[in-house]
Amino acid sequence: MIDALQAIVLIPIIAIVGIFIALLFKGIDRILAARMQARIGPPLSQPFIDVKKLFMKENIVPKNAVKWIFGMMPVVALTASIAVLFYIPLFGFKPLLDGYGDAILVIYLFAIPSLAMVLGGFASSSRYATIGAQREMVTMLSYEFPLAISIIAIAWLVSSTTACSPAFSLGAISIWALVGPLGILGLILLFLVMLFVMPGEVGAIPFDSPEAETEIGGGVLTEYSGRNLGLFYISASVKTIAFAAFIVALFFPGNISNTLFLTGIGAILADALFFLVKIFIIVFIGSTFIRVAIARFRITQVVKVYWGYASFMALFGLLLIAIDLMGVV
């Protein structure tokens, strides 16, 4: 628990650091994607340049748009993305709002940027945006199901084996130690499901049909420009690292400083670096590599993949954990 003053000081710091790291990761992501395609790619600072340029550009609002929703949604999306950061352990520290929210809350917070994009898309009164918004909605409904199964499986596992209250705080417990070999297999399945949900969650290519540049010319973002588009851009970047940090917190919490026998400032630095490396690996597998290695799915295929394969995998993982727990308990 923290006092109000501490929170007031820390919230802007975390927000700014979060945005900085998010844009930096976006730059790395773009360079790596380019290298995989045998290109040079943009300089590391390109996302910062993009954001700077977008914020300088004129903010155009379509004539027929519902202006207040259209203008508010980018802010809502960014706020929700940043809010996630307060509930997730970052850089080896405890979450800022530790004890105020749990994994279930985080899933809801993750849904808000997508919902904001849906509303913004519908509000912009463009046909492309409308199609994009419909697709975004369908995509969201599809990936939320396996995601929810995975999170609830883990929440149930934690609440039934440890003394933690049901609203467990993220990153406090290493879940791998709680189960037997069958349960570990189940957890690996859940981890794979989470990795598979990640591109859908962050709107990367196999599941980017809501934005599908070559089909509906940007989809939900068609009518957005200038500052609003910049806010969505930052929101998407922050969401990417937030989701990666979420996966890290669920599956690979823990710090490196104890193993390396470091203390003081060295320990903090080592933990922070270790955290960044973990996030980097998750982002690389879950977003960068999948994004360049697979063609875009149709929206019907997105539903099939998530509700069919991913949900089945998640349910199977849940079943394995359940069997394991029944045996243990």
Binding site: A34, R35, M36, A38, I40, I294
Partner: peptide
């Protein structure tokens, strides 16, 4: 299956194909 993924992973560690004329970045 996923032949491209293998190729992409190989290319990650190779030099980019692009000829950097006149400079690496504009």
């Amino acid at each position: 299956m996923f032949e491209m993924a293998k190729e992409l992973f190989k290319q990650l560690f190779k030099k980019p194909f692009t000829n950097m004329f006149p400079a690496k970045h504009a």
